[in-house]
């Protein structure tokens, strides 16, 4: 009886996870922009993986493999959002603009588009001084190390 129940639960979990993973992969193709693609990727990387791996853990029963799977799920649940955040921060620092800002600029008209770009640039410049104090101690420490 419990065997059948475990089979049903693991099957439902694995199929749901595979569906989520496939949905995230379709989002990769369909989404227009890096930041929307990050959204789709986090769907497949956290929900899909966690569902499939927990389904496999139920399938394995009370064994060492199930414990390893639980550790794997915990690791992925911690590292997935961290990777997404690091990727988005690196892309913004490298100058990749979100699609919403560009659409906003296009809606305002070609004359004011430059204005919006300017405001985006100034808002980045406003955000930049916050980063500078963080970066300068690093540089000074590097120089100090060099000396």
């Amino acid at each position: 009886m419990t065997d059948i129940l475990a089979n049903i639960v693991s099957g439902v979990l694995i199929l749901a996870g595979a569906g989520f993973f496939l949905t995230g992969a379709i989002g990769f193709i369909r989404m227009p922009d890096l930041f929307t693609r990050l959204h789709a990727a986090s769907l497949s990387d956290t929900t899909g993986m966690a569902l499939i791996l927990s389904g496999l853990a139920v399938h394995a029963g009370f064994t060492v493999a199930a414990v390893k799977l639980v550790f794997l799920i915990l690791f992925l649940l911690f590292m997935g959002p961290a990777t997404t955040h690091a990727l988005a921060a690196a892309a913004l620092a490298a100058g990749v603009k979100p699609l919403g800002a560009m659409r906003h600029a296009a809606k305002k008209g070609p004359g004011k588009a430059a204005d919006t770009v300017k405001t985006v640039a100034t808002s980045e410049a406003k955000a930049a001084p916050k980063k500078v104090p963080k970066n300068t101690p690093k540089n000074t420490s590097k120089k100090g190390r060099r000396r």
Binding site: G24, A25, L34, R37, S44, D45, T83, L87, V96
Partner: peptide
């Protein structure tokens, strides 16, 4: 962009 490729490569690793 490179970041798109990196994101997709990471997801392929998860796959």
């Amino acid at each position: 962009t490179t970041f798109d490729r990196l994101l997709a490569a990471n997801s392929i690793g998860n796959g």
